[in-house]
Design a protein around this nucleic acid. Structure first.
Lengths: 125, 125
DNA sequence: GTGGATTTGTTCGTATGTATT
DNA sequence: GAATACATACGAACAAATCCA
């Protein structure tokens, strides 16, 4: 059931029926509409949060994520780049929302730098 | 409470006390040891899953994630790269576990290609 | 090979706390 | 102050899959 609700909401977001910045119905409302408990509604929304599709502004409500302006990081020769979910420390340091990875740039000497993936892109020199 | 347990387990993973491939104690066991309900234990583990630190092999148990061999993708001139969590379709297509982002390479003509971030890194020509 | 024990998954209900409107 | 909405925690029950005696 929670998967079905997550799929439904995800579809509405991807189709634009729910546009960035739009609020989702409240947990209570979703539960009533679909005849499921609030526990199950929360599980569906937790799924969407971990996918980075929605953010919660407690206790105002749950909203479709708005994309951030992007800055570009230019890679230097010999550097490699990857991505992973942030550590707990990084999440606090960068003030990252759920479901946002970090881009990790590794220099030839092994030094690593992390960039929040919702605000940065990588480019060639 | 669930955050404290997540922090504890994360610390054990980062310190190596729990090595890659090692099983975590069962949910029931963790609940007994820390005098918390299974619900709360599950919430802590859900946190670690979304961080990509552990994977669950149901119903065998929960294990510290083992890193995969990495392939390198060479970027071409004019391409940009970012990262985000996979869509539901991508997760199934790449057989991705929870907490694993995708690297997204955008060509000058707008074409995008996604690579599972646990198996790929980006490099310069 | 059958059956029981173990372990995670899903769902319900309930209660209380916290922050915003 | 009241209403609203999300966060946290407990308890309970059953399902499904694996493992082992």
């Amino acid at each position: 059931m929670f998967r079905q609700l997550a799929d439904l909401l995800r579809g509405q977001i991807e189709s634009g029926e729910l546009a960035p910045g739009d609020p989702l119905p409240s947990e209570l409302r979703l539960g009533e509409d679909h005849h499921i408990s609030r526990t199950t509604v929360r599980q569906a929304i937790a799924q969407l949060r971990s996918e980075g599709l929605v953010t919660v502004d407690r206790p105002r409500g749950t909203f479709v994520r708005v994309s951030e302006p992007v800055e570009v990081v230019v890679l230097s020769s010999g550097e490699r780049a990857g991505a992973r979910m942030p550590t707990d420390t990084e999440r606090r340091r960068f003030n990252l929302r759920e479901g946002v990875p970090v881009l990790v740039v590794t220099a030839p000497d092994g030094t690593q730098t992390a960039y929040p993936a919702d605000r940065y892109q990588l480019a060639l020199p």
